[in-house]
Structures are given as structure tokens and as C-alpha cells.
Design a protein around this nucleic acid. Structure first.
Length: 459
RNA sequence: GCCCCCAUCGUCUAGUGGCCUAGGACACCACCCUUUCAAGGUGGCGGCACGGGUUCGAAUCCCGUUGGGGGUGCCA
């Protein structure tokens, strides 16, 4: 095990794995690896009603997809918070014994009523001096001392919080279970975490957690709060209304490398060239350089990155990558022949089948608009007939097929752009698609001619 | 309401007092290339929120205003 700094990523398994979480994980991963430290994965599975085992598996799978997994010696875990419940309660008890915390038997309703009566909001520390002991239904609250707490944040600098505005927060619920703020700190302490890098939404928790570290007799970790990711309305990305599931992007044919690269450009810049391999970004990432403003998760730019990464794939890599999106019965050898031609036309791997499906269907799926646009011209029928005649005997390779059609179209005073259209629609069903002559070559003379004759019959 | 954070093209960013008539990328537009559509090439549009300071000099420092965000749970 490494002796360097210990970072951690501590998601809760309450839903699909969030792209924001993915970015935070990447930050921690880069920092841990560049410093020869450790990345601890801790699953915070203490919310019994919202937890689901499949979400935990989803987190681990998604991280592995990004390249963060136990295969790497810098990775430690997964550790499960639920297994440390005894330590959380033991810490809570120590806090009570040392006078840093006290019990309170007021219900939420009673607290609200009293606050209303006194014209204040929140909890007023009313049970501080009542000397209550543990009892069923009572909560343990932290006794926030007077003064201020300064959080030294590597991204934001020093942030000062006045204790007067921090109420005595709950550490242990009435049902005896610890809350996040306590469990999180106790685990970080016992796991020897030295650096906490997380999203900005946790910044308001930080003074409370820092007080807990100190009350428990430890030096707090180095903090860093990176800005949140937002949607087009500039609201924090939410699982409910935004498309945030990393799994979903994977299933739609986004490449892990593209996703990783894009995520890293949110709130940080890898330099003049923003398309960079992970090996480079991992070493150059610095918290000092992280932006302070929320960043919009832009699907269009992600897609552009993805297209760029797809174009950089070798043909073999592309064919392999597309495989999960291709119907099992499609001939991979045929697909492979077309792969180089569709490569620059793909934004996602999931686009692949739709671009070449005509090669594998028994009959082309004729698009009505395409048909009416190209087949209603006066030259469509004679040109198709002539092309069929010429194609019956010419050599069957893309260059010759092209030359043959060019020869035919000369009789109609057409440019290639116009002349290829009826053939394209007859064979592929659409006006747009991969290069036609290459597609014809791959499809073969017999099937190409059959489709052209069928189209001719319809005219 | 209260606390905290933030503010460069539509978006992501470079920029840490003079290299800035503010650079790049995505998006958008035009042209070129072209076998349709892409890809590629070239060019264009477009920004330092506002007002005060400090300074010989400010996108960069300070203050205020405005605007945005996060948090205010016996969720995490």
C-alpha cells in the first residue's frame, strides 16, 4: 500500500451514477495517482430506504468504465459505510462524554413551534443545559461553540463561517442511527483520509465537519470544493430532471475516453489543446487551476468530443466498439468493409447501425420524402434503366462503378451529385448515407441490380 | 429570510497589472473541397455584468451594485 496522500470518493448508492460524481471521482483519481497516493472508494450506504444494491454495482461498473478500478494499486475499496456503524456510534458517545454533544428529546414539530413562538428559525440549542441522557427518540446534537471556523480550501481559499449561524446539528437520530455528517467524518478519520475533494454543495457542511474532526482530537484534512455541474437553466444537475446517468451515456454509444476528456474540461482546462489523453491530464490536473463557477454540462460539446474520439479509432477498434450496437445476425465482415466509410459520420457508436442497415436488410427501407424528391424527375427512370444495363457487365469495384455511372450520366447532361441520387435511393432507401459506390461494391452486383430493378418497376 | 460561493464570447475555457485592437474549443453562419451526408480546410459572428476607486497603466487588485448558484433536514 502507498504511503502518499489519501483521497476518497464517497458516493451514496441512491440512483444511477451521476456525471457530476464521475467528474469528482476523476479529480480524486488524478490527484491520487499523480501524488503516488491512494484513492479510497467508500460507498455511503446508510440511507436504508433509498439504498439499493444494484446502484452500488452500478457505481463500481461506471468507475471501471472510466478507468478507475481495483486493477490499479492506487485504488482501495470498495469500503461500505454500513459496516462501520459501531465506530460512528462510538464516536458519538465520546462526543457526549467529552461534553461536545448533548441529547435532546424535542420532536421536529416541537422545535418548529418553539421557533415560531420565539420568532426565530431552526433549533435554538434549547436542550443544551438540560442534562438529558440517551433515551429512545432523543437525538444527539453537537454543541457548536462560540467563535468562527475558517476552512482552508484549495480551490476557494479561506472561507470563514460564524458559529452564530450554525445551529446545534444532529449527530445521531432518534432511532439511534448516525447522520451523514458524523459518519462521513468518522470514516474519513478511521480510513486515514488526508484530502477531501468534493462538490461545492458540501462547502456549508465543512465547518461542521471540521469542528467534529477537532472535537474528536484530529487535524482536519485538506479540503477542496469544486464547482457543481449545471443544466441549461443553470441549476445543479439533478437526477430527477436532467440526463445525468453515466450508464445512459455509455449505452448511447459514448466512448469512455471522450467522456473522461470532456468531463475534465468542465471547470478546468488541459491547456491550448483540449483533446488530451488521460495520461497527460492525470499528471497536469491541479486544484489551484480549477475554476470557481458552475459549469454547464453541454451535450453538444460532449458529442463533438465523442465524434473526434471515434475518428481517432483504428478500423479494428471501431468495429469492436460498435459490436454491441449491431444486431447479432449482421455479418461482421460486411460491416468491417463499410466501417472506414461510416467513421467520420458517427457522433456516437449507437449511430452505426442506422447508417449501414440497408446492407443487411432484405429490402431497403424506402423513405417517402427521399423517393419523391429523387424519383419524380424526368431523368430518373431512363437513367436508372441505363445504369442497370451498364452495371450488368462492368467490373465490380467502387472506382469502376463510379466511372460507369459517369459514363451513363453524360447522356443526360447531369452532374454526379444529381445522377447518383436515384441509384442511392433505389439501393439504400435514402438520399443521405455513406459513399454510394463503395456501398455498392460491398453489397455486390446481384443485390444492387435487384434493388435497382425493383425501384424501376415502381416508377 | 439568513449564511456561503461565484461573475471573460450563447456554452466550456486561456488570461494571475503592461505581451489583450482579450487567445482556443463547441455551437452558429459563409466559402472551399466533394459522390449525398459527414469529415476536412479557410473565414466570419460574438465576451471582460455595471459603477466607483488604487495605479503611469486593470479582464487581472479593492469597495459597492446587480445578477447567478449552493446551503439552510432526525437526506447524502
Amino acid at each position: 500500500m502507498s504511503t502518499g496522500p489519501r483521497y476518497r470518493f464517497a458516493p451514496s448508492p441512491t440512483g444511477m451514477f451521476h456525471v457530476g460524481g464521475a467528474r469528482t471521482a476523476l479529480h480524486n483519481w488524478a490527484l491520487a495517482r499523480q501524488s503516488g497516493g491512494t484513492f479510497v472508494l467508500r460507498i455511503e450506504d446508510t440511507d436504508e430506504v433509498r439504498n439499493r444494491p444494484e446502484w452500488t454495482a452500478g457505481i463500481i461498473d461506471a468507475l471501471a468504465w472510466l478507468g478507475i478500478s481495483a486493477d490499479d494499486p492506487h485504488f482501495e475499496g470498495p469500503l461500505f459505510q454500513s459496516e462501520y456503524a459501531a465506530a460512528h456510534l462510538e464516536a458519538a458517545n465520546r462526543l457526549f462524554e467529552s461534553g461536545h454533544a448533548y441529547y435532546c428529546d424535542m420532536t421536529p414539530d416541537e422545535i418548529q413551534d418553539r421557533a415560531k413562538a420565539e420568532g426565530t428559525t431552526g433549533y435554538g440549542g434549547w436542550s443544551r443545559d438540560r442534562g438529558l441522557g440517551p433515551a429512545p427518540g432523543s437525538v444527539l446534537r453537537f454543541k457548536v461553540p462560540e467563535g468562527t471556523t475558517v476552512v482552508h480550501d484549495l480551490v476557494r481559499g479561506d472561507v470563514e463561517f460564524d458559529h452564530a449561524v450554525i445551529e446545534d446539528f444532529v449527530l445521531v437520530r432518534g432511532n439511534g442511527t448516525p447522520v451523514f455528517i458524523l459518519a462521513n467524518v468518522v470514516d474519513d478519520m478511521s480510513m486515514g483520509i488526508t484530502n477531501v475533494v468534493r462538490a461545492e454543495e458540501h462547502l456549508p457542511n465543512t465547518p461542521k465537519q471540521q469542528m467534529l474532526w477537532q472535537a474528536l482530537g484530529h487535524e482536519p484534512p485538506v479540503w477542496a470544493h469544486v464547482p457543481v455541474l449545471v443544466n441549461e437553466q443553470r441549476k445543479k444537475l439533478s437526477k430527477r430532471r436532467d440526463k445525468v446517468a453515466l450508464e445512459q451515456y455509455r449505452d448511447e454509444g459514448f466512448l469512455a475516453d471522450a467522456m473522461v476528456n470532456y468531463l475534465m474540461t468542465l471547470g478546468w482546462s488541459p491547456g491550448e489543446q483540449e483533446i488530451q489523453p488521460w495520461s497527460v491530464m492525470e499528471q497536469s490536473f491541479r486544484l489551484d487551476d480549477v475554476n470557481l463557477s458552475p459549469a454547464f454540462f453541454d451535450l453538444k460539446k460532449l458529442a463533438a468530443f465523442n465524434g473526434e474520439y471515434i475518428r481517432r479509432l483504428s478500423v479494428d477498434e471501431l468495429v469492436d466498439a460498435c459490436d454491441p450496437w449491431l444486431p447479432a445476425e449482421w455479418d461482421r465482415a460486411v460491416f468491417r468493409e463499410m466501417a472506414p466509410h461510416i467513421q467520420p459520420r458517427l457522433n456516437t457508436l449507437a449511430d452505426a447501425p442506422g447508417v449501414v442497415d440497408f446492407l443487411f436488410l432484405d429490402e431497403p427501407d424506402i423513405d417517402d420524402d427521399s423517393w419523391s424528391k429523387t424519383m419524380t424527375t424526368e431523368y430518373a427512370q431512363p437513367l436508372l434503366a441505363d445504369a442497370i444495363g451498364a452495371f450488368e457487365t462492368c467490373a465490380w469495384d467502387a472506382a469502376t462503378i463510379k466511372a460507369t455511372l459517369e459514363d451513363v450520366m453524360g447522356r443526360y447532361d447531369l452532374k454526379l451529385g444529381k445522377a447518383q441520387a436515384p441509384v442511392r435511393v433505389a439501393v439504400t432507401g435514402r438520399t443521405v448515407g455513406p459513399p454510394l459506390f463503395e456501398a455498392l461494391e460491398v453489397m455486390g452486383r446481384d443485390e444492387s441490380l435487384r434493388r435497382m430493378r425493383n425501384a424501376l418497376d415502381r416508377l
